[in-house]
Computed example of a mutant assay.
Amino acid sequence: MHEDSNEDLLVAVAAGPGALQEFYRRHVAKVMGMAVRRFSNPEDVADFVATVFLEVLRSAGGFDPQRGSAVSWLYGLAGNVATGMYRQQARSADAQLRLSGRALLDADDYARVEERIDAAATLRHVYRAMQQLGDADRRLLELVAVDGLSAREAADVLKITQAAVRVRLLRARHRLRNAMLAASQPSAPISYLMKEESV
């Protein structure tokens, strides 16, 4: 039995919402992983996941398989959602946005999310330090060091060459190290971000 590719599914989502369920099933773990590395409470995690897949439904018509993979497109979209949520939280203490995703998690789901949040605490500390960097440095480090994309995948998301990714990543890691040292942050958590990537 032939299984549709991720790219086929996104094209189908653009034609109608029926294929969203399968796309969600395949990729919800990736999106949840992005969420727990960025947000420290279950409401924000749930809101992020819900918003990402709502944006998939809204934006699937703009996906072009000739310009990159569906997974790269999803990471780019999710990165935009995270940036938007941080800006919203900085502008307002209004809890309405954070509460809108609560219905997606039951008691067992909350327990599992809280376990994942605890496990990702060190990485979130580094992620907060990354917010001091420029947008280009931060976005690249998010994709490669936080979300685990390869240089090729990050290049697809950012629409730049792999060589440019490698050069920018070296500079971004250096800037992050300096930012953390300037802020007198412990240096141990950044070792993960400083390792050289094999591609």
Rank of each mutant, 00 (worst) to 15 (best):
M1A: 10
H2L: 08
D4L: 13
S5P: 08
S5V: 05
S5L: 06
E7Y: 04
D8M: 05
L10P: 05
A12R: 06
A12Y: 03
V13E: 01
V13C: 05
G18T: 12
G18A: 14
L20D: 01
Q21W: 04
Q21T: 08
E22I: 07
F23N: 04
Y24D: 11
H27A: 03
V28R: 12
A29L: 03
K30A: 00
M32I: 00
M34K: 02
R38P: 00
E43D: 13
F48A: 00
A50D: 05
V52E: 02
F53V: 01
L57G: 09
R58I: 02
D64C: 03
D64S: 08
P65G: 06
R67E: 03
V71K: 13
V71H: 05
S72W: 00
S72V: 05
S72C: 11
Y75H: 10
A78T: 08
A78E: 07
V81D: 09
A82W: 06
T83H: 13
G84T: 10
G84V: 02
Y86W: 14
R87S: 14
Q88R: 15
Q89T: 07
S92T: 07
D94R: 00
A95E: 08
R98A: 10
R98G: 05
G101F: 01
G101M: 02
A103Q: 10
L104S: 14
Y110C: 02
Y110R: 09
A111V: 14
R112N: 03
R112G: 02
R112H: 06
R112V: 10
R116E: 05
D118L: 10
T122L: 03
R124E: 09
R124A: 15
H125K: 02
V126K: 02
Y127N: 00
R128F: 10
A129Q: 13
A129G: 12
A129C: 14
M130W: 02
M130S: 08
Q132A: 08
D135E: 15
D135W: 04
D137Q: 12
L141C: 09
L141S: 07
E142V: 03
E142H: 14
L143H: 09
A145P: 02
V146Q: 08
D147S: 01
L149C: 13
S150W: 11
S150A: 10
S150L: 11
A151G: 12
A154E: 10
A155G: 15
L158G: 05
I160Q: 05
Q162M: 05
Q162W: 06
V165Q: 04
V167F: 07
V167R: 06
V167Q: 13
R171W: 01
A172E: 03
R173V: 06
R175C: 08
R177V: 07
N178Y: 15
N178R: 11
M180W: 05
S184G: 12
I190G: 09
L193Q: 06
M194G: 11
M194E: 15
M194R: 12
K195I: 12
E197G: 09
S198P: 15
S198A: 04
